[in-house]
Amino acid sequence: MEHIKTFWRRRGLLWELVKKGIKLKYRRSYLGILWSFLEPLLTTVVLTIVFGTLLGRGGRDFPVYILCGRLLYSFFSTSTKAASKSIRQNSSMIKKVYVPKYLYPLSSILYNYIITGISLLTLVPLSIYCHVYPTVYMPLVIVPFILLFMLTYGASMILSTVTVFFRDMEYLWDVLLMIIMYTSAIFYYPEKLMNSGFFWILKYNPLYCIIMNFRYAMFGQPLDMQYVLIAAAYGIGLSVIGTYAFYKKQDEFILAI
């Protein structure tokens, strides 16, 4: 109860920090927020050429398939990276004034979430171009999108706690992220792996479950409930562990930064 009250009192600061993240991201660039549309669109073009045309894979809707995966993955990777650095980055503030420390990683996740939300609008013109039309399943994209937030929150809280004490975690996480990326089926179809005996690696990667469900909803299929459950289990589990670890260790942060 006490915590909720403090949170409510400090919502102004949380909002300021979120605003700062968004504002500073594109400051001094000519196209500004337009980059949120352009950047994913351009990378999709590159990936489509490389994996679709050169390697001869994918059909007409392949660009939409790639863009979904890439946007969700890059939200996960950018936010977790930003959150794990956030405590150290704001150390000058933390050393001076008492502020609930979870506001720093939380704001890094939130501003990236908002930017990703804006970037997702790129899907509209691209879907039209690729003849992917909305169905009744379309609104269900919200389910994996919310699960993605939980997963990212949990991972970020754990990472930001660990990184304060062990800076190596930043570099280790880069490597882990690469593994997560390749097992998330971002630019290939997972069907080929289905019977290979390695499929379980994909299946128990929560990010893969989230991305696939997002695509199912986009392409007019029902969600895979097993994937929803796996992602939710990870999301809730990591969030509980992350919040607990952060809460237990936050008073020692100041001694380590």
Partner: peptide, 30 residues
Amino acid sequence: PLLELGAGFDKNYTGRENIYLYGSLLGYSK
């Protein structure tokens, strides 16, 4: 606390924006 004044500023932010950032850090409302 009036210690190390301005240590909580974001250097890419303008003075105006920092007034709001630093102000809310100190707990003042918008």
